[in-house]
Each structure stands twice: as structure tokens, then as C-alpha cells.
Amino acid sequence: MATIVPESRSKRRQVSLAEVLIERAIQVTGLSAVLLVILIFVFLLREGVPAFFQVPISSLLMTRWYPIEDYFGLLPLIAGSLIVTGGAAIISLPLGIATAIFIAEIVPDWTREILKPLVEVLAGIPSVVIGFMGMLVITPLFRTALNIPTGLTAFTGMVLLAWMVLPTVVSVVEDVLDTVPKTYRDAGLALGLTHWQTISRIILPAGKSGILTAFMLGIGRAIGETMTVMMVTGNAPRLPKSPLDIFMPVRTMTATIAAEMGEVAQGGTHYHVLFAVGLALFVITFVVNLAAAAVVFRSTQRAERMLS
């Protein structure tokens, strides 16, 4: 094989210059994506790291965030982001996976042709529209239904984010279930399993890595979402103390950057701290993605071992 490839490639090069150009172009685009991520990271480091020299670490770990008087406690913001994102994941995953199973495995083809595009339309709704709806419709509803002081809470943010993440999860999981070979289903049914047993014991485990990818993509989307959470979570930088505090307002990292970056003096302490918040967000998403990649890698390895 190794001896044949260079020969055929050299032949092709004589035939078509266009092909070489296209190959190069694809190479450049591929590399530029990596380069962009690196550049963003370098930029975040350059603007964010000075914060750690200007503000002592002990101050960054305080619980008060009030930047106009130089209180830069990041804990309430990090907690806010994690709570809202985690809640959105917990709500959207089971729903998304169930919807995907329903669309891919249960309904007849014609229903599927209607449902799938509908779910994808959901993905196209701008976040500001969802936020506005949340502010005017969901917020009063939750306040009266749950009998809480205000509807602008972490919980409202979770529900709306879950709603926004849902199409991503459904599409990815549905695509994954689609790629599970038909022979697996046939084999399951031939062994005398019921439809549900085939789904839960054969198809879902076969698509495990894809479902994990959907999970990570969903979390990535949720943690980076800004507009909706800024409009419905109340933005109060308070540190949650009990699980019931999900029914209290929170302030997320993204909303903080969005709300404050516009008026901040460039090069000042507050400016650098906001970039440090961005850096923290970047690191969190990076770790989430890395963890996902590691798990997917390990499970593919195991699958290959089993098949060989």
C-alpha cells in the first residue's frame, strides 16, 4: 500500500492542478479553525491574566461581586453558571434522548418526516426571542405556580436553556440512532426481545458515544448562552446556599460579561477581571470537551477490540 500511494498521487498531480489547490484550501481551512482557537486562547490569556496580579486571589474567591467598588468575588458567578447549565442538562437530556428514540425508532416514517424538521425549527429561534417570551410569559407563570417571590430565577433560566438545548440533543442523538445498523435491530428481534428491550439493551448502548457527544454539545451550548439567561435569571450575584436556592435569582458568567463589558474602562482592573471570567468559561468548556473526547475515544477503542 505504502508504495502504491505516492505513485498514483504523482500521476493525479499531472492530471489536475485544481485538485491540488482544493486539497491545499481544505488544509488551510482545517488548520485555521485550530489556529483561531489558539489565538482566542492567547488573547484571553493576555487580557485576563493581569487580573490575577492586580487583584489578589483571595479577593477573587470572595462572595461579593460589585465591580464599581472593586469587589471582584467570582464565586457567585461561577456557581450561577454551573447551576443553570447543570440544571438545563438534567432537564434536557432525558427529554432529548426520549424524543430522539421516539422519532428514530417508534413513529412511522411519515410522522418522522414532519417531526424532525419541526425540532430543527426550534433550534433556529433566536435566543433573545426566547428570553423575551420567558420574561413576559414564563416568569409570571412560575411566580404564581410555584409561589415564589419572583419568577426571575435560576430555575427559569434552566427551563428556557433546556428548551434551547433540546433541538441540539434531539438532532444529534437521532442521527446516531440512525447509524446503528439495521442488522442489530433484526438480531435483537430474532432473539425474541421486545421492541423496547431492543431499544434499551442494543440500540442505545450501540449509540452510547454519540449520545455522550450530544450531551457535551448541549452543555457547551448552555454554558455559553448569554441573552436568555441575562433576561430571565435576575442577575443577582448571590452565592446559593441550599438546593432550594434554584428558585432564587443568580448571575451567570456570560451575563456578567455581556452586561458590563460595554461600559468598562479599557485596560482597567475591571476590564481584566471580565477577561479572566471569559478565560474561566473557556477552560470549563475545554475541560468538558476534553472529557467527552476521552470517553468517546476509550469506548471506540473497546468496540474495536470486541469486533476484532
Binding site: T150, G234, N235, A236, L239, A259
Partner: peptide
């Protein structure tokens, strides 16, 4: 301001609530 104070990004946000 109490840490519980909701900080809303717009006048419309305050009006709606």
C-alpha cells in the same frame, strides 16, 4: 445594595417585572 437585588439590563426589564 443587598446581594439579592436583581440587576436588570434594561428599563424594559424593570418595567415588565
Amino acid at each position: 445594595f443587598s446581594a439579592d437585588t436583581l440587576l436588570l439590563p434594561s428599563s424594559e426589564g424593570i418595567g415588565a417585572e
